[in-house]
Write a protein that binds this DNA or RNA. Structure first.
Length: 662
DNA sequence: CTAGGGTTAG
């Protein structure tokens, strides 16, 4: 055989890129086809480099002939170069397949280049696997180039590229290809549509998806499970659950994936009730819950803080013998943390065999939400000690934890530390520092910090300063910050309410009135406040001043009783923030029926003595409710946990875990 | 040779 010249420099010898041949003494009988098959069938391993070694059998003599010996073995292409193997398309094709499986872009490129330098032609199948290899290895640029340069393209070539863009979160480019493909009279199939719908799911609007849905029906592909799951997932992502359910009902056959897509859709909408119902239906229909199912369900429970239901599903999973992977474990951890059970969250974290970066970030977030600054710091230090690389989110979590825990020095220190990890702080990181300085009362420092920012401050940055101004009752700086927020984000009612409160507190009623007028003119509305509690596997929701609950009389009676008792104990209604220009009595009346108070009264009429009461709320708690609940925890001898949009408050014996700092 | 579903921040 004639020795060929390598057209690229051979791979680094210390790190063999492709199949490694192991030295064992048995006769050399391997034909190129057998080798190729062995390469393709060699087992996958979790360890990247080791997995490249394949159990090829080759005689010592032939290896010696093949001269490019390395510490670990030989590169199969070196064998080709050395003339020990006759290169065929089958060999190239098998190696490309292997590179695809192992996501080895560099190796794939070398093989591709090597092939192009050979005299072999390669059919459309081969070129399609090249496109696929580049797509799966994450280089869409190379994939597109190979697509452009191949001798001729069929429907699969187009589909492979569309799929590549769809899977790489580049939906525009995926969809652009579709009409071009149709113009060439190529018939799309289910593979094509599945990828197109995945791409459409990334858009905020429905239109393109609906149009392609029509085309799909025309080609008779819409009842296929793959296409159907992609379709229903797309509608679910656009929030159209009715259409998603309809498609699900009409599927020819259902499988785990279609069930999971539907459940995930409801979970995304925080509709834990429907998600849980489907979870049961799925199993009644003979489909076992998978890791996908469990993650969606836990995340739905986390969304509304449904601790009891989350616990039930956790038990279900343990009984079913499912292995606890990091992915699902992270969602369980998050579920416990967001349901107020920080202790259970920590237990799950400690029991995870393999933690990934999300596990660490989730645990840090849990600490941040519960005001456990010191714990967050120690977890972060543990992470560094054992050499886990923090990412941008990690820093955001630990900075937030410092901010909520009042750890000023540590927060500044970690912000500086980002550089050491070669992470550029993003605007969100600046927000946490403004928040940290502002909460600690260093308002001027916070303002100077914003001035010196190397990137343009956004509404969130000024919003953090505004929040701090409200906390520390600084009307001048508050007004300054608010003006900037209004410019950058004119439609958010939140900052207006903050500024109104600042003026109201300062007794500047004229200014306050102007803010109200502005809100009216712009048609801005406060989000209606609501609170909910979980009771025996169902969730009870309350809106302020709403008396639609069937037991509302008992609830109000209970609140009157509580109100009397806490007043005796020293509670004074804090009316200064009430969004109403009214006399004292009216203002007090308005406060009485804040939704968390109603929810608390309800829980007190229903929950057994000694049971912790957990209340969730869709906006931040007001100062008056915070003060009232502190008294309730003392007078009634109850542990009360309240989750607002910002964090958790654990009330016990008259005080709160946030130390009135939130 | 080409396809669908799940987690962390603000």
């Amino acid at each position: 055989m004639k020795k060929q010249k390598l057209f690229l420099s051979p791979p680094t010898l210390s790190s063999p890129l492709l199949t490694i041949l192991r030295l064992i003494s048995s006769p050399f009988t391997t034909t190129s086809t057998a080798i190729a098959a062995a390469i393709a069938n060699s087992e996958r391993s979790e360890d990247d480099e080791a997995s490249l070694s394949s159990p090829l059998v080759i005689a010592e003599n032939d290896l010696l002939r093949a001269s490019h010996k390395t510490q670990h073995g030989l590169h199969v292409l070196d064998l080709v170069d050395a003339g020990a193997l006759e290169p065929t398309s089958v060999i190239y094709s098998s190696i490309i397949k292997r590179c695809t499986q192992l996501q080895k872009l560099k190796a794939g490129k070398i093989v591709h280049a090597h092939f192009l330098n050979s005299r072999l032609k390669g059919d459309v199948f081969f070129h399609n696997s090249i496109i696929n290899m580049y797509c799966k290895c994450g280089s869409l640029e190379d994939a597109h180039k190979a697509f452009d340069e191949m001798p001729s393209r069929d429907m699969v070539s187009w589909t492979a590229l569309i799929t590549g863009y769809a899977q790489s979160d580049r939906p525009r480019e995926a969809l652009e290809l579709f009409p071009r493909m149709l113009r060439l009279d190529l018939r799309p199939n289910g593979f094509t549509f599945a990828s197109l719908f995945k791409a459409c799911g990334a858009f905020s609007d429905d239109e393109t998806g609906k149009q392609i849905h029509g085309v799909c029906i025309k080609y008779g592909c819409d009842l296929d499970v793959y296409v159907g799951s992609a379709l229903l997932d797309m509608y679910a992502r656009h929030g159209n659950m009715n259409e998603a359910c309809l498609i699900f009902e009409h599927l020819d056959s259902k499988n785990e994936v279609s069930w999971n897509a539907l459940i995930a859709g409801h979970a995304r909408k925080e509709d834990a009730e429907t998600a849980l119902k489907l979870f049961c239906d799925m199993q009644r229909n003979g489909f076992g819950a998978t890791h996908f199912t469990y993650s969606s369900i836990f995340s739905a429970c986390a969304g509304i803080g449904a601790l009891e239901q989350g616990k039930w599903v956790h038990a279900h999973m343990v009984k079913s013998g499912q292995k606890l992977t990091a992915f699902v474990g992270n969602t369980i951890l998050d579920m416990y943390a967001k349901s107020g059970s920080i202790g259970d969250a920590r237990k799950v974290f400690d029991r995870l065999d393999k933690r990934d970066i999300v596990s660490w970030n989730s645990m840090l977030t849990a600490c941040a939400h519960h005001g456990l600054g010191k714990e967050a710091v120690s977890i972060f230090e543990e992470m560094r000690r054992i050499g886990i690389q923090p990412n941008q989110i990690t820093f955001l979590c630990v900075l937030t934890a410092c901010s909520h825990g009042g750890l000023l020095r540590e927060g500044k220190h970690y912000f500086e530390m980002m550089k050491k990890y070669k992470l550029e702080p993003e605007v969100e990181h600046y927000v946490t520092i403004v928040d940290l300085l502002g909460r600690s009362g260093f308002l001027d420092q916070a303002r100077d910090f914003i001035r010196k920012m190397p990137i343009e401050p956004n509404a969130a940055v000024w919003g953090a300063l505004l929040g701090a101004c409200r906390m520390h009752k600084n009307a001048e700086l508050g007004q300054y910050a608010a003006e900037r927020v209004f410019k950058l984000d004119p439609n958010d009612a939140g900052p207006c309410v903050l500024l109104y409160n600042i003026y109201a507190t300062a007794g500047r009623w004229n200014n306050a009135a102007r803010v109200r007028k502005m809100m009216k003119e712009r048609g801005m509305k406060k989000e209606p406040a609501c609170s909910w509690v979980e009771l025996e596997n169902s969730v009870h929701m309350f809106v302020a001043n709403d008396d639609s609950h069937p037991e509302i009389k008992e609830i109000y009676t209970m609140w009157e009783h509580i109100n009397g008792k806490i007043k005796e104990a020293g509670y004074k209604p804090d009316t200064e923030y009430v969004f109403l220009h009214a006399d004292e009595q009216e203002r007090e009346a308005k406060l009485q029926y804040h939704s968390e108070k109603i929810a608390l009264a309800f829980a007190l009429t229903k929950m057994p003595r000694g049971a912790t009461i957990r209340i969730m709320k869709n906006i931040r708690m007001c100062r008056d409710c915070h003060s009232a609940i502190k008294y309730v925890s003392k007078v009634m001898g109850r542990e009360i946990v309240v989750r607002d949009t910002n964090r958790f408050h654990h009330f016990s014996n008259g005080s709160c875990s946030c130390n009135d700092y939130w």
